[in-house]
Design a protein around this nucleic acid. Structure first.
Lengths: 150, 150
DNA sequence: ACTTAGATGGTCAAATTAGTCAATATCTTT
DNA sequence: AAAGATATTGACTAATTTGACCATCTAAGT
C-alpha cells in the first residue's frame, strides 16, 4: 500500500511549480534542484503530466514548464493517477474481470470501500489547497515569508 | 498504491479458515487448493500471522492451522499490517525522520489524512463481518447454502 | 547564422520486490 | 516406527522501480 516515489515526486514538483508560478516557464532543472529529485527521473515523471495537459512545456532557451491550469483546478488525485496509473488498491476494483472470484468475493467489497475513501481524500485536495497550507506553515515556521517549497 | 498479493492472499486465507472453522485444524494445503494460492507462498504468508498469534498451528498428522481468536476479534487491518508491513501510504507518515523535509512538507499532511481513512476502513472490518457478508452473498447467489469461501 | 538552454524520447542498468520452488528439519498422531 | 503435517531457510526468476545518459529537436538571443 505504498505510494511510489513517482507519485510523491510528481506532487512535490507540481507544488513547487505552483509556488513559483509567474509568467515565465520554469526549467525542470530548477525544480529538480529545489526538490532534491534526479533531473533525469523528473523528466520522465513530467511527461504524462504534459501529455494530459496538466502542465505546459516550452522548449528552447528560457523554456521550461508551467501549470496549464490554475492550481485550484488541479486535483491531487489527477496527478497521482497520471503518474502512478490507477489508484485502486487492488486491480479487481477497477476491472472485476481481473479476478475469477470477483462475483462472490467479499474481500472485493472492502477493497471498493477502501478505494472510495482514498479517492475522496485525493479528489478533495487541489494544488491550491497545498499552496495555502504551505504558506501558512512557512509563516509559523519563520515569519520572514519564504515561498521556496523546500 | 497497490495492495500486494501477500495481503490479498492473507485475507482470503483467513476468511477461508473462518468459514471452515471447526474443532480440528485445517491443513494449509486445503486452504491453498480452495483459494488457488501456491502452497509454498502461503506458508510464508502464514508465518507472521502465527508468530503474532492470529492463527495457531499444529504440526504433525491431522495438523494444520486454526484461527487463534474468534473472527470478530480479528481486524483486517491487523492481518494486512502483519503480512505487508506498515499500511502507511508513505514512509514519512509513520516515521518523520525518513524525510528531511517532513517538517515543512505539506504533502505529508495529505498522506497523514490518507493514512487515517485507510486505517478507519480496515480497522472497522473484522473477519466476522466478512463471513457474514459471504453467507449473505452465497444465499442470494444460490439458495443452497455453501460455505466454501470460493 | 550561431550558440546556448532546455524539453523530448529513447535506451540502459542497478536495485528492489514479488512470487515461486525446493530441501530439510521437526513435530505429532496413529 | 511411519506418515502426515508445519517450520525454516535459501535460492531462483521475473517484474517493477528508480535513476543515469544521450542524441535530437526547438526556441531565444546575439
Amino acid at each position: 500500500m505504498k505510494l511510489s516515489t513517482r507519485g510523491r515526486y510528481a506532487a512535490r514538483a507540481l507544488l513547487d511549480l505552483a509556488c513559483h508560478q509567474g509568467t515565465a516557464p520554469i526549467p525542470l532543472k530548477d525544480v529538480a534542484r529545489r526538490q532534491g529529485i534526479s533531473l533525469y527521473y523528473l523528466e520522465h515523471i513530467v511527461m504524462p503530466l504534459a501529455a494530459a495537459g496538466v502542465v505546459r512545456s516550452s522548449r528552447g532557451a528560457s523554456g521550461g514548464i508551467q501549470l496549464a491550469r490554475p492550481p485550484q483546478e488541479i486535483r491531487l488525485s489527477e496527478i497521482l493517477r497520471l503518474v502512478e496509473g490507477s489508484l485502486a488498491p487492488v486491480d479487481c476494483v477497477a476491472d472485476p474481470a481481473r479476478c475469477p472470484r470477483a462475483e462472490l468475493c467479499v474481500a472485493r467489497e472492502v477493497w471498493l470501500e477502501l478505494d472510495r475513501v482514498i479517492n475522496a481524500v485525493l479528489d478533495s485536495t487541489t494544488l491550491h489547497d497545498l499552496v495555502k497550507r504551505q504558506e501558512r506553515k512557512a509563516q509559523i515556521e519563520d515569519p520572514a515569508v519564504r515561498k521556496d517549497g523546500a
